[in-house]
Simulated assay, not measured.
Amino acid sequence: MRKRFKQLVLFITCLILIPQLVSQPNKKIPKSIEKEVRIALMHYPELKDIPIEFRFKKNIKKSVMQAQPTFGALFRSKDKRDYTIFISEKFKITGEEFKTVDVPSDVLVGWLGHEMGHIMDYQHRSGLNLIGFGFRYVLLKEFVKKAERAADSFAVTHGMSDYILRTKRFILDNSAIHPTYKDRIKQYYLSPDEIMEMVEEKDSSKSG
């Protein structure tokens, strides 16, 4: 009953806020993922005035999406930065390619919400720190784990736990997805159990 009520509230909120999101000139969104981007953005009011371009890319190594600041953003103040979220046009399941836009809508929202979590993380960093972030992400596995878990955490604390869980389960419970990708998810990202623990802690702190 409680879950249905939350879904109803989210639906009503969508009806109210989506027209406002459509009018945001600082967001460049492909028509094919417009609905999913709007839903994810609704959970991040802090990003309302931050320019973000959502751009399809032919292929992204080891990932489906990738959020990063533009080169010029590294030398500007936090309130004047802009970002790009790259989205792989296709991904492979057991060797066969599928269009990313064809995955379930809730799963796509979860993926986008995770990438927006990265942008929230970037917004807390100086330009010099972001440059160091890029080097450490490429060179240090433990830093990758820290960064990906931070992005998941931002998404969960912004009310996207249901979407993040659906994305995790789509990957981990799908026998057709290659074990290598599943292992990467298990190694670097929050597990479904850890996400549920975060939600329970968040709910208990509110009720307390």
Rank of each mutant, 00 (worst) to 15 (best):
E36Y: 10
K3F: 08
E148I: 01
K58Y: 07
H43L: 10
N174K: 05
E142V: 04
K202C: 02
G159A: 10
T180S: 10
Y181R: 09
A67F: 01
I177H: 05
P51M: 07
K62A: 05
S63H: 05
V199S: 01
T94D: 09
A40I: 14
K90M: 13
S32N: 15
F11Y: 11
W111V: 15
E115V: 03
R55E: 14
H114F: 08
V103N: 09
N59M: 04
K62I: 02
V103C: 07
F98C: 06
E200W: 00
K145G: 01
L130H: 03
L190F: 04
G117K: 08
M160G: 15
V37G: 04
P45T: 13
M1A: 13
T13S: 14
V199D: 06
E115K: 04
T70P: 02
L165T: 05
F5K: 13
Q24P: 01
I164P: 04
I164G: 04
D152P: 10
F56Q: 13
V144Y: 00
G110Q: 08
D162K: 09
P179N: 08
A150W: 03
V107G: 10
R169M: 11
I195W: 03
K80V: 00
F75L: 06
V37M: 07
S191R: 14
P19L: 06
C14G: 07
K58R: 14
L139D: 04
R81W: 03
E36S: 14
G127H: 01
S207W: 05
P69N: 03
V64F: 12
K6H: 11
L17I: 12
Q123M: 13
H124G: 10
I16Y: 11
I195M: 08
E97A: 09
N174D: 12
R55Y: 06
T100H: 07
R169A: 06
M42A: 09
R184N: 03
L21N: 11
G132T: 07
E89R: 15
S23L: 15
D49R: 15
K31E: 14
M116C: 10
K141G: 05
K141Y: 00
I177P: 02
D82E: 15
L140Q: 14
E200V: 11
G117A: 08
Q7G: 01
L130N: 00
S175I: 02
V64K: 05
V109G: 07
V103M: 11
N59E: 12
L15E: 13
Q123E: 15
K145N: 02
I195V: 13
S161T: 06
G72F: 02
F86S: 14
S63N: 09
S191P: 09
P69A: 01
R184K: 07
S105H: 10
F71I: 00
R149T: 10
K78Y: 02
M116P: 01
I29W: 03
W111F: 12
I93C: 07
I131Q: 01
G127P: 00
K206P: 00
T157Y: 15
E115T: 02
H43F: 13
S23T: 10
S32Y: 06
P69H: 02
V9H: 08
R81A: 02
L112A: 04
P30I: 14
V101W: 06
H114N: 15
A67K: 04
